[in-house]
Design a protein around this nucleic acid. Structure first.
Lengths: 250, 250
DNA sequence: CGACTATTTGATAGGACTCAACCTCCGTGG
DNA sequence: CCACGGAGGTTGAGTCCTATCAAATAGTCG
């Protein structure tokens, strides 16, 4: 059941068949969740690690007055947080964007995997590093980039992440995010997202219709966004490992 | 030499004397750095873990056209990243704000500590969790909060973090950050930071003069910022541990 | 005291927001 | 099969928050 996760892990480490099998067979509750439902709520006690198998989800935080900031998107293969053995409660919520299939790994299941397989542990750490890289990039977007640049950057990010899990076909992908949600992601109003999107269409950068986003000019989009995909570490295992530096320890 | 770090760790875990001694005696290069110098540059190879002992530093990222976003502040006891054994290169830079004393732990020194002392490892993970919590809070600020709210939130964050390491006296602290740097932190222009700061002075929220920031009304500041310090996990070990949940493993 | 660097002030412009209405697409149900 | 309703998308008008540019003032350090 953990196929998308394994594919993701293989960006960071090489897994043995035994490790793959352990991941596939780890105890997990599979669950289908409707679109726009909370999977985990802020302050809720953490029971296990949540893994997205299909669909889009997002992390978000609400301010007391109702303003919402989306903190990141979770695509197939993404996990809420492997460090569940430390945290007792969530400090943000996770909700589905589209209809989603998730797996919930009980705490002990994760602990079992990590204590038996150092390479799996290592892959988990990699995930946290990449997530942090993404968060940093979002900080740069929200702090420095204009509306057009932000939107372009987000599209580039999702394009690359989805491509890495073979969810891009004909330069396009399923994109269930509403303009209101994009607004909460990019720190913009839905109206302004709409107008920015129209600019992009006018410039033949993207086509967006019927929940499908097609990238018409990735080059131009990347330039506008000042996008560099390195931080996503999608280069397949080899490229991601240090070169010319022998290291043994864990 | 690692005193501020030990104090910080004790927010998250209880350390034995042996562990404290190991931290104190770990091989480290102590170094003084001028104000406004890069300690680590983007793309630079990582040699070890950098620990701030005295002074202010910050992480930042530059866009090709010169725009800069500050990603976080590093105060005494803060480390650049304990996960250096994974990463080969930095994807952002670290610079001093004030004159700073730092310690650089060689890779093997960190690996030694973590392999011998699981509680130290655990404390390291806690640090990464808190850093991520801070980053999330910044995302909310940049995405949703107004200039006044952002500034108020940042001041609250720094107040609490500095208080936890006894660097707050008479409700004030040394604050070497320029208004231009605040602008790069909050996604605002320096001019607008200046005006916002004046609003705060007018409202008797803070006093800021001669590199010293005094919080005159923390209550009001926290309300404006919608600030809740929980995410900093400064509650001293007991409060930070889960209640009513026995757990043994790592 | 001079040369910077940092802060402050004023004037003007513009990006993004709000409000409000209207349109479009779909799924539901009569 | 078409009317209805709601969610999401689009448009227009007016406003406000924040940026820019420019210049003056205050601080700091050798």
């Amino acid at each position: 059941m953990a196929l998308p996760l394994i594919r993701k892990f293989e960006n960071y480490v090489q897994l043995s068949d035994i490790e793959k099998r352990s991941l596939m067979q780890a105890e997990a509750h599979i669950q289908d969740v409707e679109a726009r439902c909370d999977i985990i709520r802020e302050r809720q006690e953490i029971e296990g690690a949540t893994l997205v198998l299909e669909g889009f989800a997002c992390r978000y935080r609400l301010l007391p007055d109702g303003r919402r900031q989306i903190l990141g998107y979770m695509l197939p293969g993404d996990m809420c947080d492997p460090r569940i053995f430390l945290l007792d409660r969530m400090d943000h919520s996770i909700a589905t964007i589209s209809r989603t299939k998730i797996a919930i790994w009980p705490r002990k299941s994760v602990l079992g995997l990590t204590s038996l397989h150092p390479r799996i542990t290592r892959a988990f750490w990699w995930c946290t590093l990449v997530d942090e890289g993404i968060a940093r990039e979002w900080l740069v977007s929200l702090g420095q980039r204009t509306a057009l640049e932000r939107l372009a950057h987000l599209i580039c990010e999702l394009y690359h992440r989805l491509k890495a899990i073979d969810l891009v076909t004909a330069n396009g992908f399923d994109f269930p995010v509403t303009q209101a949600e994009l607004g909460d992601t990019l720190g913009l109003s839905a109206v302004h997202v709409n107008r920015t999107l129209q600019d992009m269409r006018r410039e033949r950068l993207v086509r967006l219709a019927g929940r499908r986003l097609t990238v018409l000019n990735l080059e131009a989009l990347s330039t506008i966004a000042m996008f560099n995909p390195d931080y996503l570490r999608l280069g397949r295992t080899r490229a991601a490992r240090p070169v010319g530096r022998r290291e043994k320890a864990e």
